[in-house]
Amino acid sequence: MRAYLPDYHLRAPKTLSDALELLAREPGMWRAFAGGTDLMVLLEFGALKHKNFLSIRHLPELRGIEVTPEHVTLGALTSYTEIQRDADVRREFPLLCAAARETGGIAIQNRGTLGGNVVNASPAADSPPALLVYDAELELVSASGTRRVAYRDFHTGYKQMDMRPDELLRSIRLPRTTGDLHTYYRKVGTRKAQAISKICFAAGARLASDGRIRDARIGLGSVAPTVVRCARTEDVLRDQTPDEATIKAACASLVQEIVPIDDMRSTAEYRARVAANLLADFLSTLKIDGGKSDSA
């Protein structure tokens, strides 16, 4: 442990309103501590700059999976294990299940939360590409009220997001409109478990009866300062038949649209090429029958 523990403080407010009040009273002073699976790594390394934390794990308002006719709403504290066990999520949001299944190992899947994954804002996180494909919406709460943000607008730069220091992420809401998408998920991290993604690719689309692509959605991780939804490439695909020319054009667009970098884990060249390969592979699996392809 490289941290000096007496420097750190952890409080556990009794209720959500106590927590929000504390955040409002001393904005920027307190940060949420959910599963701690991102925070504890930094602490161990002596790299956790922030010193004061609010434990939120016990707050019921941030828990649970709620299903209405229009939405499935996941509390911010939903763990990867809960995601994989939920029948509705499994049926309608296979990309999120695939992401959960490939996140960390079993201990991390039990402890880590979807909200933590979102707010930690790592460009290499594995669930956000799936959330982007599903047009997720975030519910942020503070002492002054609640507001909703489209997830695709949430990350504004590397580790920057549309969230005030007095806010908590309460839930992640997924519209139930994507159950019939062809989906494709591929996490590329060299090893099969406990890997940090070099590229994380999630996509969905429909082929209409005329053989043309409708509703193409592409979410990518580890190819830019934030996770990204590739809108320009989606435009290239709209209403096209997934033939060789389309695939070529889409791949060309994708490598223009993303801005991968060289780092200790991989190279920009590798990330761009593999992202393009996966897009091509996804498009080549699209079938008119509308059945679901299986995620890797």
């Binding site: 790594v41 390394f45 991290g189 060299t190 090893r191 099969k192 478990a193 406990q194 890997a195 940090i196 200790m264 884990r265």
Partner: peptide, 23 residues
């Protein structure tokens, strides 16, 4: 082992990728 100026910079098991039993 990723070196930078004679120093291993991926000195964690997260970034120095040894195979797991699944591999």
């Amino acid at each position: 082992v990723v070196w930078q100026d004679g120093r291993m910079i991926n000195n964690q098991m997260t970034n120095y990728v040894m195979p797991t039993s699944a591999d």
